[in-house]
């Protein structure tokens, strides 16, 4: 299953695709993609019978994003890039990132949890929505918008879901102050 998925993901040219230790991590496959691939990945997983467990964000304000290390040689290492950026003082501000994380799982057969993650520029966090494809994503995306201000392009209604109707703050941003 994991090998199959890896070969199917290959044409989508993910930034990184890493097999992880399920016993420690709790998931089998870590796929990092660019914002443009999110819908294609969702479609692929949906076709394979996966369901979406959750979507969430992580705010990496002033931090180097922590990621699984790519083991295989020759793959583009996103981690190394961002580390290099972080060391470069002048570039630090623009390199600040946010992450959107999708957890996929499926109900039958061999256990296989897939994590899809996508890094976004913190100054302009925008990513296409997948809720036309997976209606369950609608609320998860709204919640992520509530908490992090990440805009899901094409989402029918990004009004606050868990926060008050008139909320204009994003409480899980690391620089959030009341």
């Amino acid at each position: 299953m994991i090998a199959d998925l890896k070969s199917e993901f290959a044409p989508l040219a993910p930034v990184a695709i890493i097999e992880t230790d399920y016993q420690v991590k709790g998931y089998h496959l870590d796929v990092e993609v660019g914002a443009g691939q999110v819908v294609a990945v969702a479609e692929l997983l949906d076709r394979r019978g996966f369901f979406l467990e959750s979507i969430t964000g992580v705010d990496w304000l002033g931090k180097t994003p922590i990621a699984n290390q790519v083991e295989a040689a020759g793959e583009p290492a996103a981690v190394a890039d961002s580390e290099a950026d972080a060391q470069d003082g002048a570039a630090e501000k623009s390199a600040e990132q946010m992450e959107v994380v999708y957890d996929y799982n499926h109900t039958g057969g061999e256990l296989c949890r897939v994590v899809v993650r996508c890094r976004l520029e913190r100054v302009k966090p925008e990513i296409p929505t997948i809720c036309q494809l997976i209606p369950g994503a609608n609320w998860h995306e709204r919640e992520t918008h509530d908490f992090f201000g990440i805009k899901f392009l094409g989402h029918p209604d990004l009004s606050p879901l868990l926060l008050p109707e008139d909320a204009d703050f994003h409480p899980l941003l690391k620089d959030f102050k009341v």
Partner: peptide
């Protein structure tokens, strides 16, 4: 450092922590 995921069967369904 790193991210972890874990799920259990709660009375109402899958409760996951990331």
């Amino acid at each position: 450092p790193g991210d972890y995921y874990s799920a259990v069967e709660a009375p109402r369904g899958t409760f996951g922590v990331r």
